[in-house]
Lab assay of single mutants.
Amino acid sequence: CHSECLGNCSQPDDPTKCVACRNFYLDGRCVETCPPPYYHFQDWRCVNFSFCQDLHHKCKNSRRQGCHQYVIHNNKCIPECPSGYTMNSSNLLCTPCLGPCPKVCHLLEGEKTIDSVTSAQELRGCTVINGSLIINIRGGNNLAAELEANLGLIEEISGYLKIRRSYALVSLSFFRKLRLIRGETLEIGNYSFYALDNQNLRQLWDWSKHNLTITQGKLFFHYNPKLCLSEIHKMEEVSGTKGRQERNDIALKTNGDQASCENELLKFSYIRTSFDKILLRWEPYWPPDFRDLLGFMLFYKEAPYQNVTEFDGQDACGSNSWTVVDIDPPLRSNDPKSQNHPGWLMRGLKPWTQYAIFVKTLVTFSDERRTYGAKSDIIYVQTDATNPSVPLDPISVSNSSSQIILKWKPPSDPNGNITHYLVFWERQAEDSELFELDYCLKGLKLPSRTWSPPFESEDSQKHNQSEYEDSAGECCSCPKTDSQILKELEESSFRKTFEDYLHNVVFVPRKT
Rank of each mutant, 00 (worst) to 15 (best):
V104R: 02
V104A: 11
L107T: 07
K112G: 15
T113Y: 13
T113I: 08
T113E: 10
T113G: 11
A120W: 10
E122S: 06
G125S: 06
G125T: 02
G125F: 15
C126K: 01
T127W: 12
V128M: 03
S132G: 14
L133Y: 01
L133R: 00
N136I: 14
N136T: 15
R138V: 02
G139S: 13
N141S: 13
N141E: 14
A144Y: 07
L147A: 11
E148T: 06
N150F: 11
L153K: 14
L153G: 14
E155S: 14
I157M: 05
I157F: 02
G159I: 00
Y160V: 03
K162M: 12
K162Y: 07
K162S: 13
A168I: 04
L169M: 06
L169T: 05
V170E: 08
S171F: 09
S171W: 03
S171P: 00
S171A: 14
S171N: 13
S173G: 10
S173C: 11
F174D: 00
F175S: 01
F175C: 01
R176T: 13
K177H: 08
L178E: 00
L178R: 00
R179L: 10
R179E: 11
L180Q: 12
E184F: 12
T185V: 08
E187N: 04
G189Y: 03
G189K: 02
N190S: 09
N190Y: 04
Y191P: 06
S192M: 02
S192F: 00
F193C: 02
A195D: 02
N198H: 00
N198W: 00
N200V: 09
N200W: 03
L201C: 02
R202P: 00
Q203I: 12
L204G: 05
L204D: 00
W207C: 02
S208I: 04
K209L: 06
N211H: 15
L212W: 06
T213K: 11
T213A: 07
I214R: 04
I214P: 00
T215S: 07
K218M: 06
K218A: 14
L219V: 12
F220L: 08
F221C: 12
H222I: 04
Y223D: 08
P225G: 01
L229P: 03
S230W: 03
S230T: 03
E231L: 13
E231C: 09
K234A: 08
K234F: 06
E236I: 07
S239T: 14
G240W: 03
G243A: 13
G243M: 12
G243W: 03
R244Y: 14
Q245C: 12
E246P: 14
E246F: 10
R247V: 14
R247P: 05
D249N: 03
I250F: 13
I250K: 15
L252I: 14
T254H: 14
T254E: 08
G256I: 02
G256S: 06
D257R: 09
D257S: 02
Q258Y: 05
Q258N: 04
S260G: 09
S260Q: 11
S260W: 05
E264V: 03
L265A: 13
F268A: 03
Y270R: 03
I271R: 01
T273E: 07
K277L: 14
L279R: 09
W282I: 03
W282N: 02
W282A: 13
W282E: 00
P284I: 07
P288L: 09
P288N: 10
P288M: 02
P288G: 03
R291V: 10
L293Q: 08
L294I: 07
L298H: 01
K301A: 06
E302K: 12
A303W: 04
A303K: 15
P304L: 04
Y305S: 06
Y305L: 07
Y305R: 11
Q306L: 05
T309H: 08
F311N: 09
F311S: 06
F311H: 05
G313P: 07
G313Q: 11
D315W: 15
S319Y: 06
N320T: 14
W322S: 01
W322K: 01
V325R: 11
D326V: 03
I327C: 14
I327R: 02
D328N: 09
P329Y: 02
P330S: 13
N334M: 06
D335K: 09
K337R: 07
K337T: 07
S338K: 15
Q339K: 12
N340M: 03
P342H: 08
G343M: 12
G343A: 05
L345I: 13
L345S: 08
R347A: 03
R347I: 08
K350T: 10
P351I: 09
P351W: 15
W352I: 15
Q354W: 08
Q354G: 03
Y355K: 00
Y355R: 00
V359H: 01
K360C: 14
K360F: 10
T361N: 03
S366L: 02
D367Y: 15
R370D: 13
T371I: 09
T371S: 09
Y372N: 15
G373I: 10
G373V: 11
A374W: 15
K375T: 03
I379C: 11
I379E: 03
V381M: 11
V381T: 09
T383Y: 00
T383G: 00
T386V: 08
T386M: 03
T386A: 15
T386L: 03
N387S: 07
L392S: 12
I395R: 14
V397S: 09
S398Y: 12
S402D: 14
L406S: 15
W408M: 02
K409W: 11
K409I: 15
P411L: 01
